[in-house]
């Protein structure tokens, strides 16, 4: 291609070729202008703050003030404190558990919506129904779990009434379990959506072809449906991961501040004006998210599928 271009250009007067080139360049610049507002916005309000946080994490922290004298003290403190390392571990553990649960609970729902509801209108209605809980505010949704999960909450009352349990289950509220229940409920829909979308794009005749060739339903699910829905799984997993890793409200409300994720540490440190330390945790959290998202994206070739 470029060789052909060169041949054509060589056959023309020099100035014409130059004029063509400048016109092309100008057109390219014109197109890039479309990105300017977004680039400016992101630089000012995303890239600059991130750079700032990295910078501040190396400032020297005194009890009530912070001075721009570079030091690694906050970093050393983070990695030598059992409390903060355990918050890092809690974050990773909750991420793995919630991601696994949203996948296990969400995939069958997505399978039902994406594969077995073939009517597009019904499909939309069901997907909208999935996001109905989002019509209330995040905090109300989190707080609403308390009367559900408490010792005298709805779940315990129902189980007691049905005679399934003799004593109220105390582990339901203000434990890590309640945090897992709450986060799974809130984030499962972000798993269902992308998977259902990918599944609804699978050509039904591809599934028929597999059955025609002798594959049982289980085999079709394993060899055709699952691989073809992988991009949806990855996108859903990215959504859920980013949101779970950054959580602070759900663990705070549902564990009675017993379960601390990195997000809770940041809130706490900012509250007591420990900016340098909050920045360290912020950087750790950002790096953790970046690594996890990068790993997830390697699971499926999104460029090919979307």
């Amino acid at each position: 291609m470029s060789h052909a271009d060169a041949t054509i250009a060589a056959g023309r007067p020099q100035d014409a070729a130059v004029r063509d080139r400048t016109r092309l360049a100008r057109r390219r610049v014109g197109r890039l202008l479309l990105l300017t507002p977004a680039v400016v916005w992101m630089t000012l309000f995303l890239l600059a703050p991130i750079a700032m946080i990295v910078y501040v994490s190396f400032w020297t922290q005194y009890t009530f003030k912070i001075v721009p004298v570079l030091t690694t003290k906050s970093w050393v403190f983070f990695f030598s404190s059992e409390t903060y390392l355990s918050a890092l571990w809690t974050t990773i553990r909750l991420w793995v558990i919630v991601l696994a649960l949203t996948l296990v609970i969400g995939y069958p729902v997505a399978l039902y919506i994406g594969m077995f509801i073939r009517n597009k209108t019904t499909q939309t209605i069901v997907l909208v129904a999935c996001v109905v809980p989002f019509w209330t505010s995040f905090l109300i949704r989190v707080v609403a779990w308390r009367p559900m999960l408490g010792t005298e909450g709805a779940v315990n009352l129902i189980l007691l009434h049905l005679g399934i349990i003799k004593q109220p289950i105390e582990a339901l509220l203000f434990t890590e379990l309640s945090v897992v229940i709450g986060m799974t409920q809130i984030y499962v829909v972000f798993m269902v959506g992308p998977i259902a979308f990918m599944l609804s794009r699978i050509d039904p005749s591809v599934i028929e072809a597999a059955r025609d060739l002798g594959a049982s339903w289980w085999r079709v699910l394993r060899t055709i449906i699952l691989p073809l829905s992988m991009p949806g799984v990855v996108v859903g997993a990215v959504f859920v991961s980013v949101m779970v890793l950054g959580e602070f409200a759900t663990p705070a409300e549902l564990s009675g501040r017993k379960v601390n994720m990195l997000g809770n540490i940041i809130v706490e440190q900012v509250g007591s004006l420990k900016w340098a330390f909050a920045s360290v945790v912020g950087v750790v959290l950002t790096v953790l998210m970046a690594v996890i998202v990068a790993l997830l994206l390697r699971l499926a070739d999104l460029r090919r599928e979307l």
Binding site: D203, V206, A209
Partner: peptide, 8 residues
């Protein structure tokens, strides 16, 4: 199949 339905 009409659209061949190959496994993509």
């Amino acid at each position: 199949f009409q659209n061949f339905a190959l496994f993509p």
